[in-house]
Design a protein around this nucleic acid. Structure first.
Lengths: 352, 352
DNA sequence: TATATTTTCGGGTACGTACACTATTTACTA
DNA sequence: TAGTAAATAGTGTACGTACCCGAAAATATA
């Protein structure tokens, strides 16, 4: 069995146009040195043949290397969340390595915006074609984004977006809708008219816009459905167990809560608190497929986990840059992730 | 920016071993014509260098073509389900075409097992390396599978599995668990002790094992949780609206039903019946992201849809054959799909 | 020992494209 | 109109691997 021997490729184009391969090559790559007439003729033939360049041969012959930087939070001892996007990026990388793709990783601390600036400036000093960026700190990320634009470095945002700027692509959840779904799920857990608490756990104020969008979406569900439930919000700026516990205990002392919605992956901290204090009458919804969270989902302490394909976010992030640069294809400006619901029954089959 | 120029590849192996490229090639491909001594030496060097062949160059130089057949049901007027796997296969194909992959499609009618045999024998007459098979009719599929084994054709099953045989890979749902999740979801819809009906709509008896596995899983949830709900089952062997309606109406006349679980994508037929007859007090769970189903999900007539990534099943089906043959890699014998829950709130973000 | 046979190996070309380098044509200047 | 610069086009080699073909070496046969 042999590959189809139909005449194809630049050679055939050259033959039909009665020119040399090099001239065809010039047209394909939009280089100068071709008269308008021949260019036109060749382009017509290319269209007629529906010529698709052989990416294998192209990449083999081309000595070009594309260098991409990754700037995302370091995996913290408190949440393993950022391991997932990293994994996705590596998976994509191993698939496209052979096309001459290099990736360099930079990590900042979610607790410390200075580290973001530090790593960002390192990236700017080097020579990258593109960056995968998790813009946790809005103003810092914006500053970096503009500098990238100046240097013609293409940015892809993952995990959360920034309004009013236009990266090559945003790959991540629709945070508002994600919160709204959480609101919707609450109707399966408690009757209308209950007391609900939105709980934000985040150290850096800047990283919070992300959580607030979810909170807004969550509330909007109750507003749109003219619910009689009471929805309050509590934010703590420490992420260690003791601080969270303390704040939460204080709140619960003074308030009745039927359902608690944790706006990020720290939900396991709350679950731990519930478990240790034998709190079983508060329903719990949170985020992300992390071993700790799954543990409490399994135990029935967490009722629902919402997940948004963090691995795929990383995977698509790199592939998007690849498509843009290597395949010079068009790229979707927004690639929203599905909003997945995990329960005790289906989590085993979930692919993060 | 240039590709890394470190010495690598067969050329470098040949240099180190002090032999020609052709000899290295013989060793790599396990061909004859190399003395044990040189073979050993070259293999040592290969291991030492951790040599990874350049798949691009390999595929470019190789004139080999791999031919795969696809044998799945034709998309029917009653359900568009089988469009999705087809789409996935085509997506994968367009990605790997350049590696010399050919795909030929064969479709049988889900209503008629004769058409399966007919198409299957067509496949056996040709010369394929692998087959993607949806084994709807057990005995017919088994017969075909054994013939493929004789001819050394590798099979990948999608959508449903067959016990006691071992294809190259099974890619699809865990049907039992999928049904069990549906059982679990019912607890969010009706209180314990309700009346539940499992509803199978399928013309061909043979295609039913698939549905029965889901039904068994569904029941098992109630057994394991010592539920006091009543779970009955009804199967109709016509798939047109009038027949389904008639049978269902008859049943509902004599029985109280609080929740109805349709074991396949025909749930929209039931939903239509509910809508036309203003039945609003029966909760409805069914399968698959189809435009008709989504319509009723949106309207609130269907409460939950369970989906199992039909597009991805097709996509992975072809990629699995690709990995096995072209990359000669190892392949997972079972690739279970996630069990996704769709509600009115999140379906817009779902990727089938 | 001469010849035939088999085993072992190297040379060279091809895959489809990129690109450096060279050759030809055209346009422009003096 | 020669001379030169600019525009246009062609030739040839390289990318890393596969594989055909024939050469050389080793072995067997006479």
């Amino acid at each position: 069995m042999q590959k189809n021997n139909e005449l194809s490729g630049v050679k055939e184009i050259a033959r039909r146009a009665n020119v040399s391969i090099a001239t065809v090559d010039r047209v394909i790559h939009n280089r100068t040195g071709v008269s308008a007439k021949t260019k036109e003729k060749i382009e017509a033939i290319i269209k007629e043949m529906d010529y698709k360049p052989n990416l294998l041969a192209r990449s083999l012959a081309s000595r070009k290397v594309f260098r991409f930087a990754v700037l995302i939070p370091r995996e913290s001892p408190e949440t393993e969340y950022w391991r997932a996007p990293l994994e996705g990026i590596n998976a994509a990388w191993s698939e496209i390595r052979m096309y001459g793709v290099e990736v360099v990783f930079y990590h900042y601390e979610l607790n410390d915006r200075q580290t973001f600036n530090h790593e960002a400036s390192k990236i700017l000093k080097e020579n990258f074609h593109g960056v995968i960026l998790a813009p946790s700190f809005i103003s810092e990320a914006l500053e970096f984004f503009y500098k990238c634009e100046e240097k013609k470095i293409k940015c892809v945002f993952i995990n959360s977006d920034i309004s009013n700027v236009s990266p090559l692509s945003y790959i991540g959840p629709d945070l508002f809708q994600s919160g709204k779904l959480a609101g919707n799920l609450s109707k399966y857990l408690i009757p209308d008219g209950g007391n609900i608490l939105i709980f934000n756990v985040s150290r850096e104020l800047g990283a919070e816009h992300h959580l607030l969008k979810k909170a807004t979406g969550f509330k909007s569900y109750f507003e749109e459905n003219k619910s009689t439930s009471t929805v309050n919000m509590l934010t703590v700026h420490r992420t260690d167990y003791d601080s969270v516990m303390e704040e939460l205990a204080k709140y619960l002392q003074d308030n009745v809560v039927d359902l608690l919605f944790v706006t990020n992956s720290r939900v396991s901290t709350v679950a731990k608190y519930f478990e240790e204090n034998n709190i079983t009458d508060i329903k719990l919804i949170g985020y992300d497929y992390l071993t700790r969270n799954i543990e409490y989902l399994e135990k029935g302490i967490i009722d629902f986990l919402i997940c948004q394909k963090p691995i795929e976010q990383g995977y698509k992030g790199l592939l998007t840059l690849y498509e843009y640069f290597i395949e010079s294809g068009k790229v979707d400006k927004v690639q929203l992730m599905p909003i997945d619901i995990l329960t005790k029954e289906n989590y085993k089959y979930y692919k993060n």
